[in-house]
């Protein structure tokens, strides 16, 4: 890959973040710190405010109270274009209204870097093709995105974020529709970016095992508030998981890596505990 634009990561932080949709509070006093070169996992049950947090941190929702900063500057004061030059988002789900090809969608990642009416240069096309290959979607380049499966589409959207050459990568369940091989490849790529280009990574995920395997730090959200945060091995504990998700889980250590393994327990299995 062309490294000429390598710029290192930027810190992304929140302090006392409050947000409400039509008087219904969604976030209450949320704080987090994402540092360059580290992968931060955002975990919590449905409706705990994870996606809202992503939308605030990426400048989409600006009527928050408290503080959200990108590279030390308040997000609500930044122009959307300036945010997009530093920060890329991989959303939960993408629907496309028109039959753009995967390569065309990936090239959209160059938008914040291009002047007004410009067409993409040869270099932009090369960056996009690299990004597609890095996202494991090189063979999809010419396919219309509307015809792709959900997992393939997620790979293309990930490629678009890579083509943006971000210093901060915000991922909202980027691999929820992927098979296990592509999930692992995506997170390997994310870790690689954090380690080699010191990209700042924040990722929302539901798969606790992926979180244990890949995240340096974890924030547990519940009801819009932070329940626990810190190093993954300190935070992902049986007690914290039970409090966060309100269900019993089976926790063990992986023999190979020494990292946490979390298994769901069915109603019948939970009954055995009592």
């Amino acid at each position: 890959m062309d490294r000429s634009e390598e710029r290192g990561g930027l810190p992304l932080a929140a302090r006392g973040l409050d947000f409400a949709f039509a008087n219904r509070p969604v976030l209450r006093g949320v704080g987090l710190d994402a540092a360059p070169g580290r992968v931060l996992g955002l975990l919590g049950p449905n409706g705990s405010g994870k996606t809202t947090l992503v939308r605030i941190l990426s400048g989409v929702l600006r009527s928050y109270r408290g503080s959200a900063t990108l590279g030390g500057r308040e997000v609500r004061d930044l122009r959307q274009r300036d945010i997009a030059r530093d920060l890329a988002v991989v959303p939960q789900e993408s629907r496309f209204g028109f039959p753009f090809t995967a390569l065309e969608v990936t090239l959209m990642g160059r938008h914040p870097h291009l002047a007004g009416l410009a067409f993409e240069s040869e270099r932009d096309v090369a960056i996009a093709l690299d990004a597609l290959a890095a996202a494991g979607a090189g063979d999809l380049a010419d396919r219309p995105v509307q015809q792709l499966s959900a997992g393939e589409r997620q790979r293309v959207v990930f490629a678009r974020a890579l083509a943006q050459r971000p210093r901060v990568l915000l991922l909202d369940e980027p691999a929820s529709f992927m098979d296990i091989r592509h999930q692992v490849e995506l997170y390997d790529r994310v870790r690689h970016l954090a380690e080699t280009e010191s990209t700042t990574v924040v990722t929302v995920l539901h798969d606790l095992n992926l979180a244990a395997e890949y995240c340096d730090d974890v924030v547990l959200l519940r009801g819009g508030a932070v329940l626990a945060s810190g190093r993954t091995r300190d935070v992902l504990t049986y007690a914290n998981l039970k409090r966060t998700f309100d269900t019993e889980v089976y926790v063990d250590l992986n023999d190979l890596t020494g990292k946490l393994v979390v298994l769901p327990l069915s109603g019948r299995a939970r009954a055995l505990l009592e």
Binding site: I83, A84, A88, V89, F96, M108, H111, P112, A118
Partner: peptide
């Protein structure tokens, strides 16, 4: 080019700098 980005949805376009 902003219309192209808008095909990703309003959030998607904003996150590309529109």
């Amino acid at each position: 080019r902003e219309f192209n980005a808008l095909s990703l949805g309003e959030d998607g376009a904003a996150q590309l700098g529109v």
